[in-house]
Simulated assay, not measured.
Amino acid sequence: MTGRLSWALAAAVALGSAGASAQEVATYSAPTGLEVTVGLGFQAGVGHVYKNGMRLNQTIGDVKLSDAANGAVPFVAELGYRVTPNWFIGAYGSYTHIITKENPYSCFEGWECAASQLRFGPQVQYHFSPTASFDPFVGMGFGMVILRNENSGPVQTQAGTGNLKLKSSTRGPEFVNLTLGGKWRLGHSLSFGPFLTATFGRYTTRSGDTTLTLPSPLPTTTTPLGYADDGTYGAFMLGVRGSWNI
């Protein structure tokens, strides 16, 4: 009798453990609820910052993304909700450090030049295999882009050597962004994998000023930036990202 009772207890424990393990797998394999993602990558772009505007060398013309940058490093973040295991709805945002380069239109040789970009907006993702160890997905969104520049350095004037400082903020709509990626499961709620994002947008509003500081006692003058036509562009981001399901 005691032997039979021991076997019955062992079987009950085994079934209970198996049921708990199955429940744990099912809980992970069907992720829903709040999801947070962070990532890092490299960005390159084609197109224009603006067209037919006054450039730093006092000529009227275009400034391309390739004129002023050697690429960029985006830090990306997403926050949203997995309404089903397949569908994610939320918002994206990124801060991008732009790797500036010397050029005759916006950053003279020997100048200090800094630029950054902000992107944000809503997005939706579809996950093809949320129960698999690797889950490929596709995402789409739209939003707003803000590009900030601050360049400064010495210039020669009739009154002597002065310092010219240019500050600008250029913004516009990001009409669409498309993301392809995938996630490897690292644990119950963590995943990690690569992504590729392509964006298409237009810089439509440009504001800012230039400040010329001359040797004392000459005055310092500030002049607003002139008009420029819109700049249409495309950008590509390749990187890695990690997600946490809460």
Rank of each mutant, 00 (worst) to 15 (best):
residue 2 T to M: 11
residue 3 G to M: 14
residue 3 G to Y: 14
residue 3 G to D: 15
residue 5 L to H: 13
residue 6 S to H: 15
residue 7 W to A: 13
residue 11 A to S: 13
residue 13 V to W: 02
residue 14 A to R: 11
residue 16 G to A: 14
residue 23 Q to E: 13
residue 25 V to S: 11
residue 26 A to T: 00
residue 26 A to P: 00
residue 28 Y to D: 06
residue 41 G to Y: 07
residue 44 A to Q: 11
residue 46 V to P: 00
residue 46 V to Q: 14
residue 48 H to W: 10
residue 49 V to K: 02
residue 51 K to R: 15
residue 53 G to T: 06
residue 53 G to N: 06
residue 54 M to L: 15
residue 57 N to A: 04
residue 62 D to N: 15
residue 63 V to Q: 04
residue 65 L to T: 03
residue 67 D to Y: 02
residue 69 A to E: 07
residue 72 A to W: 01
residue 72 A to V: 01
residue 74 P to T: 09
residue 76 V to M: 15
residue 79 L to K: 01
residue 80 G to S: 07
residue 81 Y to A: 00
residue 81 Y to C: 06
residue 83 V to N: 10
residue 84 T to S: 15
residue 84 T to L: 11
residue 85 P to Q: 10
residue 86 N to P: 07
residue 87 W to T: 09
residue 92 Y to M: 02
residue 93 G to V: 02
residue 93 G to D: 01
residue 96 T to H: 04
residue 99 I to G: 05
residue 100 T to M: 09
residue 100 T to E: 04
residue 100 T to W: 02
residue 103 N to R: 00
residue 103 N to W: 01
residue 108 F to G: 08
residue 111 W to N: 03
residue 111 W to T: 12
residue 114 A to G: 15
residue 118 L to R: 11
residue 119 R to V: 01
residue 122 P to N: 08
residue 125 Q to C: 09
residue 127 H to T: 08
residue 127 H to D: 10
residue 132 A to L: 05
residue 137 F to K: 10
residue 141 G to R: 01
residue 142 F to L: 15
residue 146 I to D: 10
residue 150 E to N: 14
residue 150 E to V: 03
residue 151 N to K: 02
residue 155 V to L: 06
residue 169 S to K: 07
residue 170 T to E: 10
residue 176 V to Y: 09
residue 177 N to P: 01
residue 182 G to C: 09
residue 183 K to F: 13
residue 188 H to V: 02
residue 191 S to M: 00
residue 194 P to M: 11
residue 204 T to C: 03
residue 205 T to Q: 13
residue 205 T to Y: 11
residue 208 G to D: 02
residue 209 D to K: 13
residue 210 T to H: 03
residue 212 L to Y: 05
residue 213 T to R: 11
residue 217 P to F: 05
residue 218 L to R: 06
residue 220 T to M: 12
residue 221 T to A: 06
residue 223 T to C: 04
residue 224 P to I: 05
residue 227 Y to C: 00
residue 228 A to D: 02
residue 229 D to G: 01
residue 232 T to R: 07
residue 235 A to L: 09
residue 238 L to W: 11
residue 238 L to D: 03
residue 239 G to Y: 05
residue 240 V to K: 05
residue 240 V to I: 15
residue 241 R to N: 10
